[in-house]
């Protein structure tokens, strides 16, 4: 089964035609997607900034990560669900869309960055959790995370200007 056939079968789903044809479904799903993504970016940015030592290293990194990342994941789940609903409605044109592809690339890069941080740098967190400068690998992870998420949002908004409706 080639990719075009898969995309077309996604578009043929009942839920896909509902999103496509309803007057309010797409804007409403898109609105929830925005609520989800602002919480993803905002909560993960708090963790990223702490990796850069902001506002202070006197609060433990693990305490901030514990407070924020649960919500980051919950909001990310909501963004994936709403994003998938918008995708299936017009799968073929999203697949061909340049900013959409760049957005997916940025998401993958953000995921790889997070995985490397979790599996390598975070292992030694007890040495720099509190009142110590974050190691350079952690600072790089924080900077990359902010960069990839800002790029994700930028390409996401760009999709809207290359497709109708925006």
């Amino acid at each position: 089964m080639d990719i075009t056939a898969i995309l077309q079968s996604l578009e043929a789903m009942t839920v896909a035609s509902w999103v496509r044809e309803s007057d309010w479904a797409f804007p409403m799903i898109e609105s929830v997607h925005v609520i989800a993504l602002v919480l993803v970016f905002g909560t993960i940015a708090i963790v990223d900034l702490r990796l850069l030592g902001m506002p202070t290293t006197s609060v433990a990194f693990t305490a901030i990560a514990r407070d924020c990342l649960l919500w980051t994941w919950a909001a990310f789940g909501l963004a994936v669900i709403t994003g998938a609903l918008m995708f299936v409605a017009n799968a073929t044109s999203y697949y061909d869309n340049f900013p959409f592809r760049m957005k997916m690339l940025c998401l993958v890069l953000a995921g790889i960055n997070m995985a490397v941080f979790e599996l390598v740098t975070f292992r030694g967190v007890s040495r720099w959790d509190k009142d110590h400068p974050v190691p350079i690998a952690g600072k790089i992870a924080g900077t990359l995370s902010l960069t990839f998420w800002i790029a994700t949002i930028t390409f996401g908004r760009w999709i809207g200007f290359t497709k109708v409706p925006f």
């Binding site: 609520i35 993504l37 602002v38 905002g42 909560t43 407070d67 908004r157 200007f161």
Partner: peptide, 25 residues
């Protein structure tokens, strides 16, 4: 200009929303 400014608008909205969210928590 419009797409770029809209993107900055969303990023700033993200800071507003998440700040209120963390205070709420």
């Amino acid at each position: 200009i419009v797409p770029t400014v809209q993107t900055v608008h969303i990023l700033a909205m993200s800071v507003v929303m998440s700040s209120m969210f963390m205070i709420g928590l």
